[in-house]
Design a protein around this nucleic acid. Structure first.
Length: 571
RNA sequence: GCCCUCGUAGCUCAGUGGAUAGAGCGUCUGCCUCCGGAGCAGGAAGUCACAGGUUCGAAUCCUGUCGAGGGCACCA
């Protein structure tokens, strides 16, 4: 739609130049915007304001001239010049009606774009340590990352979802020691000392109990190191499986689960590890130096506050070293762009990561999205959590309580850089206060109309909606009958969808989808109260309105699909 | 102390340098003989934290002040 209007305006200006009405060396690219106030029309352009100076004309005069040239186009219902020289355009009913045909032809691909042009993008998100359950913040990042991936795919990018598993390092050792201590307790060993910094959550005891049940108490008399090594692998596998299940239960599937361990391991040829190879690359480019026995990366070259250690004086690598090797690997795998979603507690890490990516020769090819944290409420009361005792509401608890649809919807409703207050009671409420039901209800209502039109009971559970729509909605429906305000408003709203996809893809802003979903649902509800769809006395109008209603159904389902929320046929 | 993010209606928040700053909730007033009332219509509600600056034009960009949250390891 925007392109159509842009062409119109561009042509008008070019024609005016050719006709000698306007003296302009070159025709600037017009900016086409949606006026904030719908009373100003469907589209507005400031082109007259932008080019008046170089044309040596008064902006209003130029605007009048251009307005006269677009007024006759069949897609334009009205054009007016306003304020200092804005040109406001209103689309004709026939132009809007065409949108319905486009929606029905596109189906689930409605609003898909090619702005990505097949560019390869990787979205890495969640990446929770495999040492325990996910917290609700992970849930938010899961919803964000998955929805971003869906949006980017819809916008024409080639997207891969990845989970980075921190399965090497201190926290894994602590984890293993914690499980071992619980195991010994359960096995009846006296005087077991629980590690100072150990994980105290009840799930550790559960894991220990399962090992005891599976393998007996023989490990109690084993060498501690051997025992811990065995428990680490056993418990790690269990937790990882659990993470996959929870995420999968929310509809989030990763293409790649990337193990940190592979970065520390030699290749099959026994050569350098990925970390060592990354060091070599940085070394060759002159970004490394030794100081006080440690190996440093001169990240200040790329705007970091201070240089960073990669290999400690004791010879071990920092977490950052592995992360550099990891990102080098991402680009080696051919991604044009890498998006990492991190929690707000990692934002101090952003500059050094950007510096590292730049030092590897991929400057600007990483986008670090910082997801703000989630505060849990229940009916307005803060839900307290204690890290010390390990007592917390996990992401899994939340999913069990409010369901995947409500959880995903609420997680996406706020912009990413805004801390989120999540009220469990509200998310569970099935009322008008709850936006996810408002949107889903619009979809269910449409399905009821289709069932009604097919002569079935409106709540009949056996009706196949897609098949019904296919049989019922005539492709040659007289859409020209759709010219009342509620109908035009509905079509206008549908026409906005491709722009919403574009903006949310460019800004990595899934929250714009929830907003649009609510707008579209509202517009539909307004249409519904004012326009009777199924009317045996008016078969042509019924056919046209069924067409519009079905297009709305398709659009709603598409939007909800990118959000990752189901589009129920009845509720 | 330094760095990052944020400050918009009673509450929770949208807002792409553009026109009279919007939505949901809450509040007040109405609407079911009729396709699903989990709905619709209408009203009240604002010093866009504050002060400068850039611009034809600033909630939006820049600087400073105040306030809130987060981060500042040879931890991960």
């Amino acid at each position: 739609m925007r392109e159509l209007v842009a062409d119109l305006v561009r042509d008008a200006l070019a024609d005016a130049v050719r006709a000698g009405d306007v003296a302009l060396a070159e025709v600037p690219e017009p900016r086409i915007e949606r006026p904030r106030d719908p009373a100003h029309g469907d589209w507005a352009t400031n082109i007259a304001l932008a080019s008046a100076k170089s044309a040596g004309m008064n902006p209003r005069q130029l605007a009048d001239l251009l307005a006269a040239r677009v007024a006759d186009h069949p897609d334009v219902a009205a054009v007016e010049v306003a304020g200092p020289g804005f040109i406001n355009l209103r689309l004709s009913a026939s132009a809007l009606q065409r949108v319905l045909t486009e929606v029905r032809a596109a189906g689930g691909t409605f609003g898909s774009l090619d702005i990505g042009a097949g560019e390869r993008v990787q979205v890495e998100f969640v990446s929770a340590n495999p040492v325990g359950p996910m917290h609700v913040g992970h849930g938010r990042w899961a919803a964000l990352g998955d929805s971003m991936a869906r949006i980017l795919s819809h916008a024409g990018y080639s997207v891969q979802r990845e989970f980075y598993i921190n399965d090497q390092g201190v926290q894994m050792d602590v984890f293993a020691k914690s499980v071992a201590a619980r195991y010994l307790e359960l096995a009846g060993v006296e005087g077991v000392e629980f590690p100072e910094e150990g994980y105290r959550g009840a799930y550790i005891i559960e894991i220990a109990r399962e090992i005891l049940a599976d393998e007996g108490d023989g490990w109690a008399s084993a060498e501690p190191a051997e025992r811990e090594h065995h428990f680490k692998e056993k418990a790690y596998a269990q937790v990882l499986e659990h993470l996959k299940n929870v995420l999968s239960g929310m509809g989030v599937e990763f293409d790649v689960w990337f193990s940190e361990r592979t970065l520390h391991a030699s290749g099959p040829d026994g050569g350098a590890t990925p970390i060592e190879r990354a060091f070599e690359r940085l070394e060759d480019a002159g970004h490394l130096y030794e100081h006080e026995g440690a190996l440093w990366f001169r990240s200040t070259t790329f705007g970091d506050d201070k240089d960073r250690v990669l290999r400690k004086a004791d010879g071990s690598y920092t977490y950052f070293a592995a992360d550099i090797a990891y990102h080098a690997d991402k680009y080696d795998r051919g991604f044009d762009r890498v998006i990492d979603i991190w929690g707000a507690d990692h934002h101090g890490y952003v500059k050094r990561m950007e510096a590292a990516v730049a030092a590897l020769g991929h400057e600007g090819k990483i986008t670090l999205v910082i997801g703000q944290l989630v505060n849990l409420f229940r009916g307005g009361e803060v839900v307290r959590m204690s890290k010390r005792t390990g007592e917390m509401v996990t992401f899994e608890d939340l999913l069990d309580e409010v369901g995947a649809d409500a959880a995903r919807y609420f997680f996406l409703r706020r912009s990413t850089d805004q801390p989120l207050d999540f009220d469990i009671a509200l998310a569970k409420e099935q009322s008008s206060e709850n936006p996810v039901y408002y949107v889903q209800y619009a979809h269910a209502r449409i399905c009821a109309i289709l069932r009604k039109a097919a002569g079935a009971d409106t709540a009949d559970t056996d009706v196949d909606i897609a098949a019904t729509a296919r049989d019922l909605v005539r492709t040659e429906a007289p859409l020209y009958l759709l010219d009342s305000d509620p109908e035009l408003t509905l079509m206008r709203k549908l026409a906005e969808w491709p722009e919403v996809v574009e903006i949310s893809a460019r800004q990595l802003a899934p929250h714009k989808l929830t907003r649009y979903a609510e707008d579209l649902a509202q517009t539909f509800h307004q249409f519904y109260t004012q326009c009777r769809v199924v009317d045996p006395d008016a078969p042509d109008l019924t056919a046209a309105r069924l067409y519009a209603v079905d297009a709305t159904r398709i659009a709603l389902a598409t939007v909800l699909g990118l959000i990752g929320v189901s589009a129920p046929e009845r509720m």
